[in-house]
């Protein structure tokens, strides 16, 4: 089963150049049933990444461009009066897709944002007292523009931890940039991608991740990291218990992708920046720099 992920990653790396680790993290997030927040300046390939993943996984993908006048109903759908039947009929919004790309989420009003975030958390939508389940697998990739522009609503810090991971894509390196400039359009490349992993297989994988074994030693390490963030004066605010669970889940998924049946400390270290960076709320945007003290000071068990 894990071999599939390798092929998938290989294919993705053909499209998005020089970002192997980020793609890996994104896939890991998907397998761990989490949602992904990509925070970067426009044009580095956030949308391309989302589209590539959707294509490779054979998921139906819907992009929601968030704007300042978008309303919750624009996202989740609305009940519209059907004149023919004289009843209200629910028209599902773009959220009813297996993969949702919420672009520039910080342009929307807090009301619209929280509609999305609540749906992500609950995995279903309640409209007019009726609950509609979201499809499975359900995966949200949100992008956020870090530069504070007038009229944006950056996601409140307390809402950030609805996302399992936050990654930055960054500029491609010299060689990748060259290939990018030389090669054909990404768009057509994505169109030509085959489906490497069916949604059913993906669900199987997600189930398999929960069976990954976590030894006491790894739990010790995980707890040591959590209490370090709570006690150290380097962080304003330590990791919450939910963050601890997220860290462990992500590490399990990482171990699964590494074709192991048990988590080792390296798995935690690999996902730490992506999982913990945005939850430590240090004002700094560089996740790697935020978690560096943890990696340097917390001894592995």
């Amino acid at each position: 089963m894990q071999n599939d992920t390798h092929h998938l990653l290989d294919a993705a790396n053909q499209v998005i150049l020089g970002k192997a680790h980020k793609i890996r993290l994104a896939l890991c997030c998907l397998i761990a049933r989490g949602h992904l927040l990509i925070e970067d300046i426009p044009g580095v390939g956030k949308t391309t990444l989302a589209n590539t993943l959707a294509k490779l996984l054979g998921l139906n993908c819907q992009r929601i461009q968030f704007t300042s006048d978008i309303l919750p109903a624009d996202i989740i759908g609305a009940s519209v009066f059907d004149a023919k039947n004289l009843t209200f009929k629910f028209h599902p919004g773009p959220l009813f897709n297996q993969m949702v790309l919420a672009d520039e989420i910080n342009r929307a009003t807090p009301k619209a944002q929280s509609a999305l975030l609540e749906a992500m958390e609950e995995q279903n939508i309640t409209v007019d007292g009726k609950t509609y389940p979201l499809p499975s697998p359900f995966f949200v990739i949100a992008t956020q523009n870090p530069s504070y522009q007038i009229g944006t609503f950056p996601l409140p810090e307390s809402q950030l931890d609805r996302f399992l991971m936050r990654i930055e894509l960054g500029y491609p390196d010299h060689d990748a940039e060259r290939l990018l400039l030389k090669g054909q359009s990404r768009h057509s490349l994505i169109e030509s991608l085959p489906v490497m992993l069916t949604p059913e297989r993906l669900i199987n994988m997600q189930d398999a991740v929960t069976d990954i074994y976590v030894s006491n030693a790894v739990l010790d390490y995980c707890q040591a990291i959590i209490s370090f963030t709570r006690e150290s004066s380097e962080y304003h605010c330590g990791l919450s218990p939910r963050a601890g669970l997220a860290l462990l889940n992500a590490a399990k998924a990482w171990a699964f992708m590494e074709q192991r049946d048990a988590v080792i400390p390296e798995d935690i270290q690999a996902v730490l920046a992506a999982v913990a960076g945005h939850r430590l709320r240090s004002g700094n945007n560089d996740s790697a720099a935020i978690v560096a003290p943890i990696l340097a000071k917390v001894a592995v068990h």
Binding site: S68, D69, L71, T109, I150, G151, F153
Partner: peptide, 8 residues
């Protein structure tokens, strides 16, 4: 300006 849409 007056035309700068800010939000709802």
């Amino acid at each position: 300006g007056t035309d700068d849409f800010y939000g709802l």
